[in-house]
Design a protein around this nucleic acid. Structure first.
Length: 410
RNA sequence: GCCGCCAUCGUCUAGUGGUCUAGGACGUCACGUUCUCAACGUGAAGAUCGCGGGUUCGACUCCCGCUGGCGGUACCA
């Protein structure tokens, strides 16, 4: 049985890069009909942040990366102490300033085959130093708790960030001394920012939750995250989580550091907004606290709005701009004159009820005869440079909306 | 400094010795469609495959060196 784990440390809200590690673990588990375990590694008491732990759950839940089992390391202290005791009996550790240190071998080398790139990684043991397994406060270190737990929980594949490569020799030696089966290691290249440096706050250093609050939808976030460093064999990029599970393979994960591309994430979001069937519901959920937008979504015009907005949104936040009826700027003198002229024409031609197609034809006619671009006409009819179509606006607001804008008292 | 990993269009990448005058996607630009803006469609620009040596009849693909980037070097994970 394949078993993997996502083992975040609740010292801060995990950013999108860390969350991608969870995704890859999840995909790998599902692909192999295995188990996905969540393990909170909270052995650093000084840096522990309660909010961060909550955020981890919230992120995984929002994305639908549900775990089969969950463990919290701070609840397992006696286990680590017990295993430290075993090492003590074997003379593999020694005390130093109240901490327990593991003796690393100083000859030979430590190596393993990494599943990313299918390559051997080896370290000369002479470069390795003894390391603390039990801190003086009684808590285990990452290096120790991690290995003990991975073994006890039956983890078969350790899929984690590349930042752990250099501590892997420690883990390998621990497996050796315990005579435990070593899992397969897969170290994912860390995601970089636009400047090839660390992910900055305005790029992917945001958490999935922040993206969610900006109006990104889970399908897009999941889809883009998967594609940072992984390419499906068929090259088809937009895909559901089910499709990702079907196609995922560690051998297709690239071993170079990818750069996070916010623009592509945005594009995916737009593409997914146009794909999902329950856009209205997503908008309702998103605008829970926005009374104005909420009213529109609850009105009998909501379908028209949603359908018209669908192709004009990249993120859910864009809906509010579309829906906003406020005039963008004042009209120029020339625009006012033209507006007046158009209004007179519409009055004459359309009568009491402004029928959509007829309205449009009249405007087109006006546009051609007066040699005024439709963009300009759209502007002084709606007060905005761009937005949903005249036909839709007519259905939503009726002629009063256009008349008000054409009269322009502002 | 030392240790490890990596290196194809601006970005994500395909490519596993000849099919590559290097393919796709995002972005950019143009055109088309069109009631504005989008969306959509078509096309274009964009990579001397980091550099230098090998190996080979032949290298983006294999080997070595260099350079550069990243990661690690904690009683953090």
């Amino acid at each position: 049985m394949i078993k993997v784990r996502f083992a975040p440390s609740p010292t801060g809200v995990p950013h999108i890069g860390n969350t991608r590690t969870a995704l890859f673990n999840f995909l790998f588990a599902k692909k192999n009909k295995g188990k996905f375990i969540l393990r909170i590694e909270d052995t650093d008491r000084k840096r522990f942040v309660k909010e961060a732990e909550k955020a981890i759950y919230e992120i995984l839940e929002w994305l639908g990366l549900s775990w089969d089992e969950k463990f919290v390391q701070s609840e397992r202290l006696s286990i680590y102490r017990q295993y430290a005791q075993i090492l003590k009996k074997r003379g593999a550790v020694y005390e130093s300033d109240g901490a327990l240190k593991f003796k690393m071998p100083k000859k030979g080398e430590t190596k393993w085959i990494d599943a990313i790139g299918q390559k051997e990684i080896s370290f000369k043991n002479e470069t390795q130093e003894d390391f603390v397994i039990l801190k003086s406060d009684g808590y285990p270190t990452y290096n120790f708790a991690n290995v003990v737990d991975d073994c006890l929980m039956g983890i078969t594949h350790v899929i984690r960030g590349e930042e752990f490569v250099s501590s892997t020799p420690k883990h390998v030696q621990l497996y050796k001394i315990f005579r435990w089966n070593q899992p397969v290691f897969a170290h994912l290249p860390v995601i970089l920012g636009k400047d090839k440096g660390k992910l900055s706050k305005r790029e992917g250093a945001k958490s999935a939750l922040e993206y969610r609050d900006e109006g990104y939808i889970r399908e897009a976030v999941l889809n883009y995250m998967a594609l940072v460093g992984w390419t499906p064999p068929d090259g088809q990029e937009q895909m559901s989580i089910e499709k990702m599970i079907e196609l995922f393979d560690l051998k297709d994960v690239n071993s170079a550091n990818p750069i996070f591309d916010t623009q592509k994430l945005e594009w995916f979001n737009g593409a997914w907004i146009r794909t999902i069937k329950d856009l209205k519901k997503r908008l309702v959920d998103f605008y829970q606290k926005d009374k104005k937008v909420k009213n529109i979504l609850n009105s009998d015009k909501s379908e028209i709005w949603v359908n018209a907005a669908k192709s004009r949104m990249k993120i859910l936040k864009d809906f509010k701009k579309l829906v906003d009826a406020k005039k963008q700027r004042k009209y120029s003198k020339k625009e006012k004159e033209r507006a007046k002229k158009l209004l007179e024409l519409l009055d004459k031609k359309l009568g009491e009820d402004w029928e959509g197609e007829k309205l449009l034809l009249t405007i087109k006619d006006f546009s051609v005869k007066e040699r005024i671009s439709f963009a300009e006409i759209y502007f002084f009819m709606t007060g905005k440079e761009q937005g949903i179509g005249i036909l839709e606006l007519n259905k939503i607001y009726g002629k009063e909306f256009f008349i008000k804008n054409l009269k322009d008292n502002g």
